[in-house]
Simulated assay, not measured.
Amino acid sequence: MNLQNTAAPRRTGHEELVPSRYAVRVGEIDVLIVSDGVLPLPTKMLGHNAEPAARAAWLNDMFLPTEAFDWALNVVVVRSGGQTILVDAGLGLDPDLNLPRAGQLIKRLAAVGIDLAAVTDVVLTHMHMDHVGGLLIDGVKERLRPDLRIHVAAAEVEFWKAPDFSHVNMPAGFPDALRAAAKRFAKEYQSHLRLFDEEAEVAPGVVVSRTGGHTPGHSVVRVASGGDRLMFAGDAVFAVGFEHPEWYNGFEHDPEEAARVRVRLLKELAATGSSLVATHLPFPSVGHVAVEGDHFRWVPVFWDY
């Protein structure tokens, strides 16, 4: 062995040194978590109703910067009963926002060998642009199946006809970008939408359920097979939400209800032992929830190689 040839990794320009996908088996169902990249945002958005000193203390305890840091963007692919289901679609490419490290989903699906034409169903936890934007990239729609089914809560589609931003706390430009992306998505994919009121079975063992809170139609996806359970919680749970579920996230359109939903889901996860995956938890975000006094604790899984 020539140590001079192995001392440093060779970079071709196409290799990624940071993992961007992680596979999980839920009984007989395959789940793949794919990173859409990261989204730099002000730390105030983690809890805009919290005292600044308390928020700064939590960030310090987590070894995070106090002003802004990178939020993970996680998407899930589920294979069950002959169906390939994409849960959320990432940020896409909005040139007005200048977010070059996000919007990686389409190329990462290709890298793992998932053809867009093989996707039978899309489930949207909600219609914020970091969950629908990947479907709005030029050329993507033409690569999708003509019979693609997109499952989304009826309340979500209705909300974006005249969205209320009076309770959010977002950086400038985000409300307009969110409104424009949702409007464009609803127009371009109207014929593919499969609306549900409270709950729908998308495939064997894959159920989407409306929670509300973050947005009126925000939903979570539960995957169950054999004795295994996994919940994709979308934007109902953030990293700070285990210790401080009462803190309001800046993207929540009904923050009081979102906090109630968060506590209910965390209690469910702790009681059932189900695995948790969420959009903005650090990749790959797979873990469990434990109760610790009057709050919760996130327990990341040991990576399975």
Results as ranks from 00 to 15, higher is better:
128 H>M: 06
130 D>Q: 12
131 H>M: 05
132 V>G: 09
134 G>D: 13
134 G>K: 09
138 D>M: 11
138 D>Y: 12
138 D>S: 13
139 G>S: 09
140 V>S: 02
142 E>G: 06
143 R>G: 00
143 R>T: 03
145 R>W: 04
146 P>G: 06
147 D>G: 04
148 L>A: 09
148 L>P: 02
151 H>W: 14
151 H>T: 08
151 H>C: 02
152 V>L: 03
154 A>G: 03
159 F>W: 06
159 F>I: 05
162 A>Y: 04
162 A>C: 14
162 A>N: 15
170 M>L: 15
171 P>H: 15
175 P>Y: 12
176 D>E: 15
176 D>L: 14
176 D>K: 14
179 R>N: 09
179 R>Q: 14
179 R>S: 11
180 A>G: 02
181 A>F: 01
182 A>R: 06
183 K>V: 03
184 R>Q: 14
185 F>W: 13
187 K>E: 15
190 Q>F: 05
190 Q>I: 03
190 Q>Y: 03
191 S>C: 00
191 S>W: 00
191 S>G: 00
192 H>E: 10
192 H>K: 04
194 R>G: 05
195 L>R: 14
197 D>S: 14
198 E>P: 08
199 E>D: 00
200 A>D: 08
202 V>Q: 04
204 P>A: 11
205 G>D: 13
205 G>M: 12
205 G>W: 03
208 V>T: 15
210 R>A: 03
211 T>P: 01
212 G>P: 06
214 H>Q: 07
214 H>P: 00
216 P>V: 07
220 V>G: 00
222 R>H: 12
222 R>P: 00
223 V>P: 07
223 V>Y: 02
224 A>H: 04
227 G>A: 08
228 D>W: 06
228 D>N: 13
229 R>D: 15
231 M>H: 06
232 F>G: 05
233 A>P: 06
233 A>G: 10
234 G>E: 02
234 G>A: 08
235 D>N: 12
238 F>E: 07
240 V>H: 09
240 V>T: 08
246 E>V: 04
247 W>V: 06
247 W>S: 04
247 W>Y: 14
250 G>T: 07
251 F>N: 07
253 H>G: 05
253 H>I: 07
255 P>F: 07
255 P>A: 00
257 E>H: 02
259 A>L: 02
259 A>H: 05
260 R>Y: 04
260 R>M: 02
262 R>Q: 11
263 V>A: 09
263 V>E: 09
